[in-house]
Design a binder for these strands. Structure first.
Length: 562
RNA sequence: UGGGUGAUGGUGUAAUGGUAGCACGACUGGCUCUGACCCAGUUAGUCUAGGUUCGAAUCCUAGUCGCCCAGCCA
């Protein structure tokens, strides 16, 4: 199903592109790129960037590249490359060109040599600590490196030796010769190359010097002739450096535009923290359904359409704000409401015996699969003398406006019969309600009374004999507070982890058709929420269900108010 | 402290000198074989102080507050 995003006013980035197109800046060419570092799994924040970059290319008839910014062999792995490609495709996008910054290592090296020859870069023997000490502070300029005025020839020889592996890690760097007094730290003779005797996931041991991100990113964009290089706010300070490099080299100059990254309530989004949650086993992995990773939300049951709608909904600006998580939840509900088949599932079962229903009798009742989609058709549900209903749908002492089961009150079993509770069977020791005895009205088959009498409440049910017992996982926010990172000094944000973010129900009673449900399939458990068949732990005939999101529950509000 | 950058209802985002709109939320009510969906309505905003102008969210001046930067991370 294709869900077209509604047209809306343009954001500031598209406004810039429109102006560029109007002025003929790039002859109408629009070329963007999504440039992740393969050092972790993509998350919802990346989805925003992906929708922006690929979306713009699509809208303007342009191109969008996928480029891995793999300049740090210590952190990057093939596993991440694979997951990133899978996630981009899952979101519904395909790159025009696939690149790796590591493909440009030779070109970058040649360009570095050019800058050295022109006296614009030098080999520096200062240690990391010394570089830090001489960089200055926010209010004081830095000090020139004693190696800053080395002659180009000497620099050239030293740089070649760095490349040849003559020096230990960290012994020397290549630095751009810019301005140690610049108020912008990025221009205080930034490091271009560091020595790292490490194996790279793609270039192996071919190199032992690796270019810094700043000395790679802008050049990569330039090589790919990116017209609009869209990135997040924290790189604003770097733009003058990118400009310096590109101008020093005299190469194509992409325009960088910065936007605010996505923040969500009840969530953390930094890769460092997500890695930590995975490594310390606060979640089961990168694809834990509680994680804000694309892999996690996919497993949780979110759809690519919902994700794209969400990204369109939140918009893009330079304001560093926080989006409420319910905007995300609203996006899946809206999407799934239209397409998810309805089924009946009892999460907390309570046995009901229909005392006037013939023993041993089974009838098949017609049920509508999706009231929002007539084409979804109908299915049959077995009905028998013993059923399960939701514990919550019975109250011995009914609160005001409680339309469900209570002694004497008639309710409708969805697609079934009207029933009335006559007796409550309790455990004599604990007083716990063990079973309900009800009578049914045989004339109400299908759920309607021939005399036209109205029944306020309709509840879901499953035939006990035919029910599929299954594990259902109820997922909730990973953190219990809206701003988990807002902690007093010395307090770990992980103390805000929600201990009830996962509640596993082992013996839920589901309608029998669900036994054959394929992993990844999404359903609405009527009156409960949207669920999907877990792609990892389900076995043939034995599905495990993940709650994607609950249904809105206005009864909860009514009850709270009393 | 220097530099960069930003500020519109509870939240996100429009309006680019001419009626402050949309979405989410909250609140009322309606509909209903899902207390869902849907429908109708209400609430609520231009950071502050001056100035320009017939008219300012928008332009000017001065403040206030938020975020980013002192990795051989990206």
């Amino acid at each position: 199903m294709s869900t077209e995003e509604p047209t809306r006013p343009v954001d500031f980035i598209r406004a810039i592109i429109n102006e560029d197109n109007a002025s003929g800046k790039h002859a109408g060419r629009v070329h963007t790129r999504f440039p992740p570092e393969p050092n972790g799994y993509l998350h919802i924040g990346h989805a925003k960037s992906i929708c922006l970059n690929f979306g713009i290319a699509r809208e303007y008839g342009g191109k969008c590249n996928l480029r891995f910014d793999d300049t740090n062999p210590a952190k990057e792995e093939q596993e991440y490359v694979d997951s990133i490609m899978e996630d981009v495709r899952w979101l519904g996008f395909e790159w025009d060109e696939l690149h790796y910054a590591s493909d440009y290592f030779q070109q970058l090296y040649d360009w570095a040599v050019k800058l050295i020859k022109e006296g614009k870069a030098y080999v520096c023997d200062l240690t990391g600590d010394q570089v830090r000490e001489t960089r200055g502070t926010l209010s004081e300029p830095g000090k020139n490196s004693p190696f800053r005025d080395r002659k180009p020839q000497e620099n050239l020889e030293l740089f070649e030796q760095m490349k040849a592996g003559k020096f230990a890690d960290g012994a020397r760097t290549l630095r751009a010769k810019i301005d140690m007094a610049s108020p912008n730290f990025n221009l205080r003779d930034p490091v271009m190359y560091r020595i790292l005797h490490a194996e790279h996931h793609r270039t192996g041991n071919q190199w032992c010097i690796y270019p810094m991100y700043d000395w790679t990113h802008g050049e990569s964009d330039s090589l790919e002739r990116i017209t609009h290089s869209i990135c997040t706010l924290e790189f604003e300070n770097h733009r003058p450096l990118y400009d310096w490099y590109v101008e020093a080299l005299g190469i194509f100059h992409p325009q960088q535009i910065e936007f605010a990254r996505l923040n969500l309530t009840y969530m953390v989004m930094s890769k460092r923290k997500l890695l930590e949650l995975v490594r310390d086993k606060h979640v089961t992995g990168w694809n834990d359904p509680r994680m804000p990773t694309i892999a996690g939300i996919r497993r949780r049951g979110y759809t690519p359409e919902a994700m794209r709608a969400f990204c369109a909904e939140i918009g893009v600006s330079k304001y560093d704000g926080v989006v409420e998580i319910n905007v995300l939840e609203n996006a899946v509900r809206a999407d799934l409401n239209k397409r998810a088949p309805r089924v009946q599932a009892v999460l907390h079962p309570l046995k009901v015996v229909i005392t006037n229903y013939p023993e041993g009798q089974v009838e098949m009742l017609d049920a509508v699969n999706n009231p929002e989609d007539p084409a979804a058709g109908t299915r049959q549900l077995p009905f028998s003398r013993e059923l399960y209903v939701e514990q919550d749908d019975f109250r011995e002492v009914p609160p005001k406006k409680f339309y469900r089961l209570t002694v004497g009150q008639e309710v409708r079993l969805r697609w079934g019969y009207l029933i009335r509770c006559t007796d409550v069977v309790k455990d004599p020791a604990t007083g716990e309600v063990k079973e309900l005895h009800c009578t049914y009205d045989p004339a109400t088959r299908g759920g309607n009374a021939p005399d036209g009498r109205k029944v306020q409440g309709t509840i879901h049910w499953v035939s006990a004999e035919h029910a599929l017992s299954a594990e259902v996982r109820l997922y909730d926010h990973l953190f219990k507070v809206p701003a988990p990172e807002d902690v007093p000094a010395g307090v770990d944000y992980k103390t805000n982890l929600n201990p009830e973010s996962l509640v596993t129900l082992k013996d839920c009673k589901l309608e029998p058709s669900l036994a054959q449900a394929e992993p990844g399939t999404r359903f609405q458990f009527e009156r409960v929420g949207y669920f999907c068949v877990d792609t990892v732990d389900s076995k043939p005939g034995k599905p495990v269900f993940n709650r994607t999101v609950s249904l809105r529950d206005s009864w909860q509000k009514i009850e709270k108010k009393g």
